[in-house]
Design a protein around this nucleic acid. Structure first.
Lengths: 235, 235
DNA sequence: GGCGTCATCATCCTTCTGGTTGATAGTCGC
DNA sequence: GCGACTATCAACCAGAAGGATGATGACGCC
């Protein structure tokens, strides 16, 4: 277990939700989506804001591989707030199937993507949509997004170092939980049923159950209920 | 800040600065001021944003004692975001020296004050000014302030360790749980399966399940997992 | 007395969980 | 390369939990 990925599961799930609420609550955002990024760089735990499920499905099934804002493209640099229109030429915009078949038909003019990092590694992303029937994204909007981003990143860094999370961390290390197992624990503490956990992690129910089995064994417990209560009683 | 309050507010100083930056960066705020609140309820560690030193001096020397938004007035309730114009009558506004001599001459039309709390105790405040030459504060502005406040408070709770004083009683009363139901909730938080709960309460499994049904209805949840997690996270 | 609430229990049915076994595939260290 | 660990998934089963409905006795209230 390396120190990078250690950071992954620490309270991120709820943090992500709060961030999405902040962005959509403060800015004029008709659609937005956020995700965590697992140890392989894959987006998981999607949370959407007024985004059609069918649009998301199209993206996940097909178009994600053409996404010029896909997190894997930004894992090795230090990009934080990126605007799609700054990256894509007019030619691409009119020619490439990603735009012809996906972005344009859904009425999307532009997207601003935010990347949160821990120890220089991507851990979460947020995509804010700008639609064709809206005012265009201007410099002031970008400035605000940057301000919000700055505070989110600050808050994230604070949270990780906080006693609450170091306790969670040491709890997990104490019992030798792997990264995936930690993430599962976190989702369990949110009160989610296994099916939702599987959806969030984009894996099968069987996998979730196997992870749980291992967690139960490592902690010498028998149920998710016990997991939550032991977790909170230690704190 | 003395050593006492330092212990109380480790990390708050920078947190306050970041919050002020967030508020002034995202909202249209011509002047703002923030402060921490020491153990006696006194504002300390002022940080200003485009606010004239002389105005601040006047306030600190003289007018603070008339301030209808002064933190001491809100320490015993759970006010979070407060607008001056909601508290002050037109009569006061035109008659009272605080307005005649201080607020009005400085061109201030309205003020929105935010109060951050830790363990139900005030720890920091933020005053956002609205000037006479600006658009008036509207509902949307207040909504945005509330969103920002919500995230600030969340971030604070994440960042700073605090003995989780889960007001269990108030939680139960809030949702109108009966005594038996409270008892069931308590046993659920111990991670017990229904059968054990039944044994503990010396009643049948069916009864426990009925109690749980009622609890779930009252809290609008679906499972014991959710029950435990809402209990620990929301309060 | 009648009404509402609370606590109690039962039955029936569906879904979710936990436990087990077994299998594949990738990574890491030696 | 080999073994240990990790992540993934499948199938199966027993038992637990969730949801609906109905019923009974106790209590307090107007």
């Amino acid at each position: 277990m390396n120190s990078n990925s250690l950071a992954h599961s620490v309270g991120l799930y709820q943090f992500q939700e709060e961030c999405l609420g902040l962005l959509t609550g403060v800015l004029d955002v008709p659609k937005a989506i956020s995700y965590l990024i697992d140890e392989k760089g894959k987006p998981v735990c999607y949370k959407v804001h007024q985004l059609q499920p069918s649009m998301h499905r199209e993206y996940v099934n097909t178009y994600h591989k053409y996404d010029p804002l896909h997190p894997t493209l930004f894992s090795d640099n230090d990009a934080d707030v990126v605007k799609m229109s700054d990256l894509v030429s007019g030619h691409e915009r009119s020619e490439h199937p990603y735009f012809q078949e996906f972005i344009n038909p859904w009425g999307v003019r532009d997207i601003v993507e935010l990347f949160l990092r821990q120890d220089n590694q991507l851990v979460a992303g947020f995509a804010l949509f700008n639609l064709a029937n809206q005012p265009e994204i201007d410099a002031d909007y970008v400035r605000r997004v940057n301000k919000l981003y700055q505070f989110m990143q600050f808050s994230l860094e604070q949270s990780i170092a906080s006693p609450k999370n170091t306790q969670f961390d040491s709890f997990c290390s104490q019992h030798g939980l792997t990264n995936k197992e930690r993430l599962v624990v976190e989702l369990v503490t949110q009160g989610l049923p296994n099916k939702s956990i599987a959806n969030n992690l984009d894996c099968s129910l069987a996998t979730v159950k196997t992870h749980l089995q291992h967690i139960f064994q490592k902690l010498s417990i028998n149920s998710k209920n016990e997991l939550i209560s032991t977790l909170y009683q230690k704190h």
